[in-house]
Design a protein around this nucleic acid. Structure first.
Lengths: 326, 326
DNA sequence: TTGAAAGCGCTACCAC
DNA sequence: GTGGTAGCGCTTTCAA
């Protein structure tokens, strides 16, 4: 049997309600009593029983996150950041790798204080089932029934193109995968609009549709580009993974970044600085995204419907050494 | 407020203890009463309160898993399989991406019935802290304090070499990363011993130490091999990710598997069949591993110390079309 | 076959 | 400041 506040009460010779107060750092307890109790708690190896606490307080100080089914560096980084942010707010986070529906069921049984989902696990979330739990999504959930945090992808690409243009680049290539994924489609459109807006020509061969968003897709796409008779002066990569493949291909071709070719990658994550060539990148800083998600969720927990159905985060350009004047 | 058994009791006109029994499918309640109650429960949208139940029964029917910090296809596949297995046993699984110690703390607060960790998150697990929770590790935890499930890596490589030898191969190359990781070191040693046992020569250039276990590491290593004047007739890849790089490099060199070169990959996961070239593979079937982990944990939960400190799983060879007679 | 009552570990409210 | 007590929602005796 594990040790309870009653054990501590007996051990220290105070009532168990005093112990409870002391453990909750209540000002209603004399400091020395508090210290004695805290010390005893540590000595006895006391661990609070969440279930009991929760039964009374209706709070678990825990939030649940449904793991985004797809494997992408930027996404798992985001999950990590969200976790950090959650802990910073004195909450804990548990994950489920199940489908949204079974994850929801479990989270509700655990009475989590809030749930974070991703666009990836959209689907027909069954909200009829019982009690209300605040939910927030990163990216638009299919049925639009959950408030979500979005990113201005178009603007991101617009900014990237604009930056390269300001450095004198006119022959810019975009490598991305724009199938079945609104995020990717938005990026592509943003690129096209940006180019058109600045009256830059879009060559057919410089709009690369890769088959996927993996490292390798960026790698092969770039190798193809570099084999052509004329190569672009700059490349924009649609994601972190894609970009790392792009860099590798350029280096293998004995070209240097940014002297021979400038590169900007989408995804504003710290790892961009750790690549073979630290990359100038565009995107919403991952930290800000995590903060927005967690704070919105907590706000929603305080007051239902207290946040807008859609929040759009603004991308930022982080300049490193991967782009040069042309 | 969500609906409780008391609400159901009032609604159906029976006592709440009868409702409790009915909901737990107790034989002590008349079928028609039971049906009436079950129907009412559904109508009212009743969801059991885990916290309350747990407070009494001391069981959560939940197991916690500490996410292995590293990203490897085979590992995340294993986690998925473990999840499936856990559900099959009518348990739920929650994950934590924190360090073992904070994960443990959280899991204990939630009073999970068992915890699964990985060798990767070994460390100084602080077991002094309070109550006992059954724990099992995949791979040896550093301080040997947790019972673990291991794999006979040496034997795996031995079997792979033996199989290739039986097909007439003598010039076999091994691509792996054997630094700081006992698993990888065991694989390498198994390969060497297997070769020596069969009196096959081990060329220096056919023992490839990659810098890592990523896709790309297998890819470049293979490209290097294929550039040499004589190429081996068979390659053994040390992991799934490595192997997919190996295949890619071979295909890009316009060589065919298995006609020009035979390939065996380590890791017995279903994805091996989905590669560009479905791969013959060696390793403990991932499903069996998951079953062993979960069943051991559940057994441990029933009876402390009921399983050996170490269990070793036997690798199996799965033959696909990536090896041919030489 | 059903109901009443105790109690799991805790918080919150009351009185002292 | 401190202690007593009620009660959260549930399972589990025990009595009817």
């Amino acid at each position: 049997m594990s040790v309870t506040i009653k054990d501590i009460a007996r051990y220290t010779g105070v009532s168990f309600s005093t112990v409870s107060k002391a453990l909750n750092d209540s000002p209603l307890v004399k400091p020395e009593t508090k210290n004695k109790i805290l010390k005893a708690a540590k000595e006895l190896g006391y661990e609070p029983n969440l279930a009991a606490r929760q039964l009374v307080s209706k709070e678990t100080k825990t939030i649940g996150l449904v793991w985004p089914s797809i494997e992408r560096t930027a996404l798992s980084t985001l999950v990590t950041k969200i976790n950090d942010e959650v802990e910073k707010q004195s909450y804990s986070m548990i994950l489920s790798i199940n489908s949204v529906n079974s994850a929801f069921e479990m989270f509700k049984r655990f009475q989590v204080d809030g749930i974070i989902i991703f666009k990836e696990n959209t689907l027909d979330i069954n909200f009829n089932t019982g009690s209300y739990v605040p939910v927030i999504s990163y990216g638009n959930s299919k049925n639009n029934t959950v408030p979500f945090i979005d990113v201005n992808y178009k603007k991101a690409m617009f900014k990237a193109v604009d930056y390269l243009h300001s450095l004198g680049h006119t022959d810019i290539s975009f490598i991305g995968c724009s199938e079945n994924d609104q995020r990717q489609i938005d990026k592509l459109n943003g690129f096209i609009e940006g180019m058109e807006h600045l009256c830059l020509p879009i060559k057919k061969q410089s709009l690369i549709h890769t088959g996927g968003l993996e490292w390798y897709d960026g790698y092969t796409a770039t190798r193809n580009i570099l084999e052509a008779s004329t190569i672009p002066s700059a490349i924009i990569g649609g994601s972190y993974d894609l970009s790392s493949g792009i860099i590798r291909a350029i280096n293998e071709a004995n070209l240097t970044i940014p002297n021979d070719i400038s590169v900007i990658g989408y995804d504003n994550i710290p790892q961009m600085a750790q690549l073979e060539t630290p990359l100038t990148c565009i995107g919403v800083p991952i930290q800000k995204t995590a903060e927005a998600i967690v704070s919105s969720l907590l706000q929603l927990k305080e007051k239902r419907d207290s946040i807008p159905a859609k929040q759009t985060l603004e991308p930022e350009l982080v300049i490193r050494m991967s782009c040069s004047k042309r």
